[in-house]
Design a protein around this nucleic acid. Sequence first.
DNA 1: AACCAGGTCTCGA
DNA 2: TCGAGACCTGGT
Length: 269
Amino acid sequence: MDLRPIDLDHTLSCGQAFRWRRTGQTWMGVVEGMSVRLEQRGRRMEVETELPDSRIESYFRADDDYESIIKEISKEPYVASLVRRFPGLRLLRQDPWECSASYILATFSNIPRIKGMIERVCALYGEEIEPGLHAFPEPRSISENGARAETCGLGFRCQRFIEFATRVDRGGVDFEGLKGSSYEEAHRSLVELEGIGDKVADCIAVFSLDHLEAFPIDVRIGRTLKERYGVSGRYGKVSAFARSHFGPYAGYSQEFIYYAMDRKNIGPG
DNA sequence: AACCAGGTCTCGA
DNA sequence: TCGAGACCTGGT
Protein backbone atom coordinates (compact mmCIF):
# COMPACT_ATOMS: atom_id res chain seq x y z
CA MET A 1 0.00 0.00 0.00
CA ASP A 2 1.36 3.37 -0.96
CA LEU A 3 1.14 5.02 2.38
CA ARG A 4 4.36 6.96 2.74
CA PRO A 5 6.19 7.30 4.89
CA ILE A 6 5.13 4.61 7.32
CA ASP A 7 7.34 2.83 9.83
CA LEU A 8 5.38 -0.10 11.22
CA ASP A 9 7.71 -0.76 14.14
CA HIS A 10 7.42 2.82 15.35
CA THR A 11 3.72 3.11 14.65
CA LEU A 12 2.58 -0.19 16.12
CA SER A 13 4.88 -0.41 19.12
CA CYS A 14 4.78 3.19 20.31
CA GLY A 15 2.02 2.41 22.80
CA GLN A 16 -1.09 3.86 21.16
CA ALA A 17 -2.64 0.47 20.33
CA PHE A 18 -2.30 -2.65 22.45
CA ARG A 19 -3.10 -5.62 20.26
CA TRP A 20 -0.55 -5.64 17.43
CA ARG A 21 2.02 -8.46 17.53
CA ARG A 22 5.20 -8.80 15.57
CA THR A 23 6.35 -12.24 14.49
CA GLY A 24 9.52 -12.15 12.42
CA GLN A 25 8.92 -9.47 9.83
CA THR A 26 5.14 -9.67 10.04
CA TRP A 27 2.85 -7.53 12.15
CA MET A 28 -0.48 -9.16 12.89
CA GLY A 29 -3.56 -7.52 14.29
CA VAL A 30 -7.32 -7.11 14.04
CA VAL A 31 -9.07 -4.14 12.47
CA GLU A 32 -12.86 -3.93 12.36
CA GLY A 33 -13.11 -7.59 13.26
CA MET A 34 -10.88 -8.72 10.39
CA SER A 35 -7.36 -10.10 10.63
CA VAL A 36 -4.64 -7.95 9.11
CA ARG A 37 -1.03 -8.82 8.31
CA LEU A 38 1.50 -6.15 7.52
CA GLU A 39 5.09 -6.10 6.36
CA GLN A 40 7.46 -3.23 5.94
CA ARG A 41 8.60 -2.63 2.34
CA GLY A 42 10.99 0.28 2.32
CA ARG A 43 8.95 3.29 3.38
CA ARG A 44 5.68 1.60 2.42
CA MET A 45 3.93 -1.48 3.73
CA GLU A 46 2.49 -4.62 2.25
CA VAL A 47 -1.00 -5.46 3.43
CA GLU A 48 -2.70 -8.84 3.60
CA THR A 49 -6.36 -8.70 4.62
CA GLU A 50 -9.88 -9.12 3.35
CA LEU A 51 -10.67 -5.62 4.49
CA PRO A 52 -10.96 -3.08 1.67
CA ASP A 53 -7.92 -0.86 1.20
CA SER A 54 -9.98 2.18 2.12
CA ARG A 55 -10.48 0.83 5.66
CA ILE A 56 -6.75 0.21 6.13
CA GLU A 57 -6.02 3.69 4.80
CA SER A 58 -8.49 5.14 7.25
CA TYR A 59 -6.98 3.17 10.14
CA PHE A 60 -3.53 4.50 9.31
CA ARG A 61 -4.85 8.03 8.80
CA ALA A 62 -3.75 8.17 5.18
CA ASP A 63 -6.06 11.16 4.83
CA ASP A 64 -3.78 13.19 7.09
CA ASP A 65 -1.31 15.40 5.28
CA TYR A 66 1.58 13.75 7.09
CA GLU A 67 4.30 15.96 5.67
CA SER A 68 2.58 19.18 6.63
CA ILE A 69 1.73 17.86 10.10
CA ILE A 70 5.37 16.91 10.62
CA LYS A 71 6.38 20.32 9.41
CA GLU A 72 3.95 21.95 11.82
CA ILE A 73 4.98 20.00 14.94
CA SER A 74 8.66 20.44 14.02
CA LYS A 75 8.38 24.10 14.91
CA GLU A 76 9.00 22.83 18.41
CA PRO A 77 12.72 22.01 18.71
CA TYR A 78 12.50 18.92 20.91
CA VAL A 79 9.75 17.38 18.76
CA ALA A 80 11.78 18.26 15.67
CA SER A 81 14.63 16.12 16.97
CA LEU A 82 12.27 13.19 17.63
CA VAL A 83 10.72 13.48 14.19
CA ARG A 84 14.19 12.97 12.76
CA ARG A 85 14.86 10.01 15.04
CA PHE A 86 11.58 8.23 14.33
CA PRO A 87 10.54 8.94 10.75
CA GLY A 88 7.31 7.26 9.70
CA LEU A 89 5.74 7.16 13.17
CA ARG A 90 2.04 7.70 12.53
CA LEU A 91 -1.02 8.17 14.64
CA LEU A 92 -3.74 5.55 14.18
CA ARG A 93 -7.48 6.07 13.90
CA GLN A 94 -8.80 3.39 16.23
CA ASP A 95 -12.36 2.27 16.77
CA PRO A 96 -13.80 4.51 19.52
CA TRP A 97 -15.43 1.68 21.46
CA GLU A 98 -12.31 -0.50 21.44
CA CYS A 99 -10.11 2.47 22.24
CA SER A 100 -12.27 3.65 25.17
CA ALA A 101 -12.66 0.20 26.66
CA SER A 102 -8.93 -0.48 26.32
CA TYR A 103 -7.89 2.75 28.00
CA ILE A 104 -10.38 2.24 30.82
CA LEU A 105 -8.51 -1.01 31.45
CA ALA A 106 -5.16 0.79 31.14
CA THR A 107 -5.80 2.82 34.29
CA PHE A 108 -3.07 2.59 36.95
CA SER A 109 -1.37 -0.39 35.36
CA ASN A 110 1.53 -1.16 33.04
CA ILE A 111 1.70 -2.06 29.38
CA PRO A 112 2.51 -5.79 29.72
CA ARG A 113 -0.39 -6.22 32.12
CA ILE A 114 -2.72 -4.07 30.02
CA LYS A 115 -2.01 -6.25 27.01
CA GLY A 116 -2.69 -9.32 29.11
CA MET A 117 -6.01 -7.97 30.36
CA ILE A 118 -7.15 -7.05 26.87
CA GLU A 119 -6.13 -10.39 25.39
CA ARG A 120 -8.02 -12.27 28.11
CA VAL A 121 -11.11 -10.15 27.46
CA CYS A 122 -10.85 -10.83 23.72
CA ALA A 123 -10.31 -14.55 24.24
CA LEU A 124 -13.36 -14.73 26.51
CA TYR A 125 -15.82 -12.49 24.65
CA GLY A 126 -14.43 -11.88 21.18
CA GLU A 127 -15.18 -13.89 18.07
CA GLU A 128 -12.38 -16.25 17.06
CA ILE A 129 -11.63 -15.14 13.53
CA GLU A 130 -8.60 -17.39 13.13
CA PRO A 131 -7.23 -20.11 15.37
CA GLY A 132 -5.91 -18.23 18.40
CA LEU A 133 -6.88 -14.81 17.04
CA HIS A 134 -9.90 -13.09 18.51
CA ALA A 135 -11.70 -9.94 17.50
CA PHE A 136 -12.21 -7.24 20.08
CA PRO A 137 -15.62 -8.06 21.57
CA GLU A 138 -18.83 -6.20 20.86
CA PRO A 139 -20.18 -4.28 23.87
CA ARG A 140 -23.21 -6.56 23.96
CA SER A 141 -21.24 -9.77 24.57
CA ILE A 142 -19.81 -8.14 27.67
CA SER A 143 -22.99 -6.54 28.94
CA GLU A 144 -24.94 -9.78 28.45
CA ASN A 145 -22.59 -11.77 30.62
CA GLY A 146 -20.63 -9.37 32.79
CA ALA A 147 -20.01 -11.90 35.54
CA ARG A 148 -17.57 -13.84 33.39
CA ALA A 149 -15.29 -10.82 33.19
CA GLU A 150 -14.20 -11.56 36.73
CA THR A 151 -11.94 -14.27 35.33
CA CYS A 152 -9.92 -11.74 33.32
CA GLY A 153 -7.82 -10.28 36.14
CA LEU A 154 -9.09 -6.74 35.65
CA GLY A 155 -9.13 -5.89 39.36
CA PHE A 156 -11.02 -2.74 40.32
CA ARG A 157 -11.40 -1.90 36.62
CA CYS A 158 -13.79 -4.81 36.11
CA GLN A 159 -16.94 -3.03 37.27
CA ARG A 160 -16.11 0.11 35.27
CA PHE A 161 -15.45 -2.00 32.20
CA ILE A 162 -18.78 -3.82 32.40
CA GLU A 163 -20.72 -0.64 33.11
CA PHE A 164 -19.11 1.10 30.18
CA ALA A 165 -19.84 -1.79 27.82
CA THR A 166 -23.45 -1.78 28.99
CA ARG A 167 -23.78 1.92 28.43
CA VAL A 168 -22.29 1.72 24.94
CA ASP A 169 -24.48 -1.25 24.09
CA ARG A 170 -27.53 0.82 24.99
CA GLY A 171 -26.36 3.61 22.72
CA GLY A 172 -25.50 5.78 25.70
CA VAL A 173 -22.27 7.10 24.19
CA ASP A 174 -22.54 9.08 20.98
CA PHE A 175 -19.08 8.57 19.52
CA GLU A 176 -20.02 10.13 16.20
CA GLY A 177 -21.30 13.19 17.99
CA LEU A 178 -18.08 13.38 19.99
CA LYS A 179 -16.12 13.27 16.75
CA GLY A 180 -18.13 16.13 15.37
CA SER A 181 -17.91 18.33 18.43
CA SER A 182 -14.94 20.38 19.53
CA TYR A 183 -12.11 18.83 21.51
CA GLU A 184 -13.19 20.71 24.61
CA GLU A 185 -16.76 19.47 24.36
CA ALA A 186 -15.68 15.91 23.70
CA HIS A 187 -13.33 15.97 26.67
CA ARG A 188 -16.01 17.45 28.91
CA SER A 189 -18.52 14.76 27.91
CA LEU A 190 -16.08 11.88 28.23
CA VAL A 191 -14.96 12.66 31.78
CA GLU A 192 -18.59 12.48 32.89
CA LEU A 193 -18.41 8.74 32.31
CA GLU A 194 -17.43 6.35 35.08
CA GLY A 195 -13.81 5.24 34.74
CA ILE A 196 -12.85 8.02 32.34
CA GLY A 197 -10.79 10.86 33.75
CA ASP A 198 -8.77 13.61 32.07
CA LYS A 199 -6.00 11.36 30.78
CA VAL A 200 -8.16 8.55 29.41
CA ALA A 201 -10.48 11.11 27.82
CA ASP A 202 -7.53 12.59 25.96
CA CYS A 203 -6.38 9.16 24.79
CA ILE A 204 -9.84 8.46 23.41
CA ALA A 205 -10.04 11.90 21.83
CA VAL A 206 -6.74 11.71 19.96
CA PHE A 207 -6.58 7.99 19.16
CA SER A 208 -10.15 7.50 18.02
CA LEU A 209 -12.12 10.74 17.70
CA ASP A 210 -9.90 12.79 15.38
CA HIS A 211 -9.15 15.43 18.01
CA LEU A 212 -5.49 15.74 17.18
CA GLU A 213 -4.91 18.59 19.60
CA ALA A 214 -5.60 16.31 22.57
CA PHE A 215 -2.41 15.66 24.51
CA PRO A 216 -2.71 12.79 27.00
CA ILE A 217 -0.61 13.41 30.10
CA ASP A 218 0.39 10.37 32.10
CA VAL A 219 2.92 10.44 34.95
CA ARG A 220 5.90 10.06 32.64
CA ILE A 221 4.80 12.65 30.09
CA GLY A 222 4.09 14.86 33.08
CA ARG A 223 7.64 14.40 34.34
CA THR A 224 9.06 15.23 30.93
CA LEU A 225 6.99 18.42 30.71
CA LYS A 226 8.21 19.47 34.13
CA GLU A 227 11.88 18.72 33.46
CA ARG A 228 11.97 20.15 29.95
CA TYR A 229 9.55 23.07 30.15
CA GLY A 230 9.15 23.66 33.87
CA VAL A 231 5.40 23.10 33.75
CA SER A 232 3.58 21.17 36.44
CA GLY A 233 0.41 21.25 38.48
CA ARG A 234 -3.16 20.29 37.78
CA TYR A 235 -4.07 18.38 34.64
CA GLY A 236 -6.07 21.18 33.08
CA LYS A 237 -3.25 23.65 33.44
CA VAL A 238 -0.54 21.37 32.04
CA SER A 239 -2.87 20.26 29.26
CA ALA A 240 -3.59 23.85 28.27
CA PHE A 241 0.13 24.56 28.16
CA ALA A 242 0.80 21.48 26.02
CA ARG A 243 -1.91 22.31 23.47
CA SER A 244 -0.72 25.86 23.22
CA HIS A 245 2.98 24.96 23.12
CA PHE A 246 2.80 22.03 20.69
CA GLY A 247 0.03 23.39 18.51
CA PRO A 248 -3.00 21.96 16.70
CA TYR A 249 -1.33 18.56 16.23
CA ALA A 250 -0.17 18.23 19.82
CA GLY A 251 -1.41 14.64 19.83
CA TYR A 252 1.18 13.71 17.22
CA SER A 253 3.86 15.44 19.28
CA GLN A 254 2.76 13.52 22.35
CA GLU A 255 3.18 10.20 20.59
CA PHE A 256 6.73 11.02 19.51
CA ILE A 257 7.58 12.10 23.06
CA TYR A 258 5.99 9.05 24.62
CA TYR A 259 7.78 6.72 22.22
CA ALA A 260 11.13 8.40 22.88
CA MET A 261 10.69 7.89 26.64
CA ASP A 262 9.75 4.28 26.09
CA ARG A 263 12.82 3.73 23.93
CA LYS A 264 15.07 5.23 26.57
CA ASN A 265 13.92 2.66 29.10
CA ILE A 266 14.39 -0.27 26.77
CA GLY A 267 17.66 1.00 25.35
CA PRO A 268 18.68 2.43 21.99
CA GLY A 269 17.28 0.65 18.99
C1' DA B 1 9.63 -12.05 46.26
C1' DA B 2 8.51 -7.59 46.89
C1' DC B 3 7.50 -3.81 44.00
C1' DC B 4 5.21 -0.97 40.85
C1' DA B 5 2.23 0.46 37.34
C1' DG B 6 -0.65 5.06 30.10
C1' DG B 7 -5.23 7.18 36.77
C1' DT B 8 -9.68 7.71 38.83
C1' DC B 9 -12.55 8.35 42.67
C1' DT B 10 -13.62 9.82 47.08
C1' DC B 11 -13.08 12.21 50.66
C1' DG B 12 -11.95 16.35 54.00
C1' DA B 13 -10.33 21.39 54.16
C1' DT C 1 -11.91 23.82 44.03
C1' DC C 2 -7.92 21.35 45.56
C1' DG C 3 -4.61 17.84 47.50
C1' DA C 4 -4.00 13.45 49.64
C1' DG C 5 -5.01 8.29 50.00
C1' DA C 6 -6.81 4.14 48.59
C1' DC C 7 -7.01 0.95 45.07
C1' DC C 8 -6.87 -4.98 42.25
C1' DT C 9 -3.34 -7.81 40.85
C1' DG C 10 -0.38 -9.37 36.85
C1' DG C 11 4.24 -9.06 35.25
C1' DT C 12 9.02 -8.60 36.29
